[in-house]
Structures are given as C-alpha cells and as structure tokens.
C-alpha cells in the first residue's frame, strides 16, 4: 500500500491514482530528424532501475491533475512529489 502526497490534495491512497510511467522520457523535439533506432529508443527503451525512479501519476479520482513522484521501486518509499515541468 502506498500513500502518495498529491501537491494539490494532500496525502491520498495510491488506488486514487493512475500510473503514467517514467517521467524522464521526453518526446524528441524533432521526430522527423531521428532514425528508426533513435525513435524506438524513445518509444520503447526504459532505464527500469531497481531503486529511485521518477515517474508520472495522474490523480484520477481526485483533482485529475498529473504529478511527478520520486519513488523507490524496491521499497516503495516515496521521496518527494511535485509538479511536472
């Protein structure tokens, strides 16, 4: 069980949130300039660390806004939450 502190709503049960994946994945500024391998790296490849991970969550059953969460994928401890850039 996880308690995620939504920057807008305060601490809420993780079941109120929807997972949005790795927050460090950035859409390339100029997709047309990439080759297939570079595009595949953006779409498919992930760091998948065992340890601290920055990720996106949407507070679906709350304020419905997207937030960023810095969380340990092994212990599930949440270090910090914030607003996406």
């Amino acid at each position: 069980m996880m308690l995620i502190r939504c920057p807008h709503c305060g601490p809420r049960d993780a079941t109120e949130f929807t997972y949005g994946g790795d927050a460090n994945v950035r859409r390339p500024a100029d997709p047309a300039a990439l080759n297939d391998a570079q595009w595949a790296a953006y779409v498919y490849m992930r760091d998948n660390p065992r340890g601290e991970h920055s990720e996106l969550w949407q507070h679906s059953f709350g304020c419905r806004r997207w937030i960023t969460v810095r969380r340990n994928t092994y212990t599930h401890d949440i270090k910090s939450t914030g607003l996406p850039e």
């Binding site: 994946g21 790296a41 498919y44 490849m45 992930r46 760091d47 998948n48 660390p49 994928t73």
Partner: peptide
C-alpha cells in the same frame, strides 16, 4: 524480473519495465 537490472550492468537498456 531483473533483466533490466542485469542489462544495466552490461551497459544497455531493454524495452522492459519491471
């Protein structure tokens, strides 16, 4: 389960999340 973890030791990434 730990493929990404060991692949990181080899220096590459995989299209996998655990």
């Amino acid at each position: 389960g730990h493929s990404g973890h060991v692949a990181a030791m080899a220096g590459f990434r995989l299209p996998i999340e655990t």
